[in-house]
Simulated scan of single mutants.
Amino acid sequence: MAKREFKISTPDGIAGAGLFRSVDKTRAGVILYMDAFGPRPALDQMAERLAGQGYAVLVPDLFYRAGAYGPFDAKTAFAEEKTRAELRALIGGTTQAMTMRDTGAFIEALAAEGISGPIGTVGYCMGGSRALNAAAAHPDRIVAAASFHGGNLASDAPDSPHRNAARLKARVYVGSAGVDGSFPPEQSALLAEALRSAGVDHIIENYVGMGHGWCVPDHGVYDAAGAERHWKRLLTLFDETLG
């Protein structure tokens, strides 16, 4: 598996990123939107698995505007006051609009690597909402968007993904943790209503018994069986949309 570390010029600066692709012919491009703990070996492992299916997988650092930060321990960072404050500042300082704008540069970076066709997005935790909003911002290129344990997908915020449903042309998959305060049942219902009203091909699936973060291997609530179920759903989505 080949991984390249490189820099992407965006309207706001230079974002670090990793690009994962197998030596075999690449099928299509995927952008993986990180969770709150940033690019790290756990996400590299996930990107490598996707790349092993024939995709070119880009994992950008969404917090690049903040300069150096972390590293964070996904099991303890939100439990400790100092790192919790740092994480909240990073998340709050990286708006949805910023990531939507950055996605144009991410798509250009894939094109520079010869990936100029349809693109899929997938995001975890804070990356889930960004994967959906990215698809709304770039409907001409992004044909599939997946969110796993994404928070605030249908919140009161003006940049909540459900408000951009009418802009989506992508097929959407949302996998929610069984009990997740950041995406309660009322938000799930509101998101479903928005997607259905907009005519978006979508699935919202509740992973009963899973905790927020169950897909990512360095999270304290990681669940191997639940993670495999997530992989099955994600790969089916990309197989059917990216070819």
Rank of each mutant, 00 (worst) to 15 (best):
R167A: 15
A47W: 11
I91E: 12
L242K: 05
A134F: 10
S182I: 09
D35W: 00
G13V: 03
M126P: 08
A42T: 03
Q96P: 09
A66M: 02
S155Q: 08
R141P: 11
A170G: 01
M46S: 12
E113C: 08
A166H: 10
P184H: 08
A56D: 04
G127H: 08
S176W: 00
A2Q: 15
V174M: 11
V172P: 08
H162W: 12
N164V: 06
R84Q: 12
D201P: 05
F20N: 07
I203C: 10
I119R: 08
H202G: 02
A136S: 12
G70D: 10
I203V: 11
L19N: 05
D180S: 09
R27L: 15
A109P: 12
A47Y: 12
A135K: 03
H202S: 15
H138R: 07
C215M: 11
R229W: 07
G29K: 03
G181T: 03
G220A: 13
F6S: 09
G209R: 11
R171C: 02
D24T: 11
L50C: 05
E193K: 15
D35N: 07
P60C: 05
M46R: 09
G92C: 06
T94H: 07
D12I: 00
A154C: 09
E205Q: 14
H162L: 07
F37P: 04
K3C: 06
L110N: 06
D223A: 10
E193M: 04
F6K: 11
A97N: 13
A51E: 03
A79Q: 14
A74H: 07
L43R: 12
D12P: 08
D12W: 11
A131Q: 08
M100V: 03
G220R: 07
H202E: 05
F20M: 10
E113P: 11
G117Y: 09
L191N: 12
S9A: 10
S188P: 00
A79S: 14
A74N: 04
A68I: 12
S176A: 14
D223I: 00
A166K: 15
R27K: 14
K25G: 06
H149L: 01
D102I: 01
G120Q: 03
A170S: 13
Y207F: 15
D44T: 08
V208K: 08
D102K: 02
G104A: 07
F37G: 01
H202Y: 08
E108V: 04
G226C: 01
E240P: 03
G16I: 06
A79E: 10
V23W: 09
N206T: 15
G226M: 06
R167G: 07
R40G: 07
G54S: 11
L168C: 03
A227Q: 01
D73L: 02
A28K: 08
D61V: 05
